[in-house]
């Protein structure tokens, strides 16, 4: 038996919104310690890794490991039927072919149950090595989203250059060019840890897709090192994270 109750549906809605532009279907791997997800986009350029620890939930029970293959569009439709302040319980028996989502209104006067058919997804998992990123930048998530939006209107490629002086985003296209530089401030809203400067080029549309996770967190962490995928991490309160990895563009 698997059963997980969240006090508010809003968190689940935000998580699904953060995933569904990059993934159409995905498997939730549920174990005693919590729920994990790892999946690549269709073109195998980016990867999403999510962790929700069991202490994220008001109630959590997972008698044996279970994989729940879900169509995220369908899950999103079900979540639209619920209010943000409803409590939600996700449950499935062992060897399930369906998952149940039960919503309970804040005053407990309304309950609604939905069943979703599970999918048998054959998802490939990649080993993500521990990486010492040469540059780690923590900045307001809203600022990162704004920069990605502004950059992608100039060019398909975004160059990110990070040094002790700051992090610089550049895009150059037919229309012209754009450069945005953020320096570390005494207010502490931009925090830079730089061992070595790094400059890498990335596809802007993926960066923009990652910013769908902005409502999850005030801060975003960006990790860069030469010739490794970019890390963009949004913490989920103190209970987990959504991490996106993006392969860089390489010179031919």
């Amino acid at each position: 038996m698997f059963e997980a109750r969240l006090g508010s549906t809003t968190l689940l809605k935000k998580i699904v919104d953060a995933l569904r532009e990059i993934l159409s279907q995905s498997t939730l791997d549920c174990s005693d310690s919590g729920i994990q997800l790892q999946a690549m986009d269709n073109s195998h350029v980016s990867l999403v890794s999510m962790l929700l620890q069991n202490d994220c939930f008001e109630k959590y029970r997972c008698d044996r490991n279970i994989s729940l293959g879900l169509d995220l569009k369908s899950l999103s439709k079900v979540l639209k039927c619920a209010s943000g302040d409803d409590a939600v319980t996700i449950s499935a028996p062992d060897k399930a072919d369906k998952v149940q989502l039960s919503f309970e209104s804040a005053g407990k006067e309304r309950t609604a149950d939905y069943e979703l058919r599970l999918l048998n997804l054959d998802q490939e998992h990649l080993g993500i090595p521990e990486t010492d990123y040469s540059c780690v930048v923590i900045m307001p998530a809203i600022e990162f989203a704004r920069i990605c939006r502004d950059m992608t209107s100039f060019s398909e490629s975004v160059v990110i250059a990070c040094s002790k002086d700051g992090i610089k985003f550049s895009a150059s296209g037919e229309m012209g060019s754009a450069n945005i530089k953020l320096s570390q401030t005494s207010k502490g809203d931009v925090d830079l840890t730089v061992e070595e400067p790094v400059t890498l080029s990335f596809a802007g549309r993926y960066l923009s897709t990652f910013t769908r996770a902005t409502p999850l967190s005030e801060k975003v962490k960006i990790g860069m090192a030469a010739d490794v995928p970019l890390l963009v991490e949004y913490p989920i309160e103190d209970y987990g994270y959504i991490r996106y990895y993006l392969a860089p563009k390489v010179d031919d």
Binding site: S43, H44, V45, L47, H125, L126, P129, S201, V250, D252
Partner: peptide, 14 residues
Amino acid sequence: SASQAKLKDFFKPK
């Protein structure tokens, strides 16, 4: 010019 790398160039299948 630059081309897009794939994740499998960096991360190995488990």
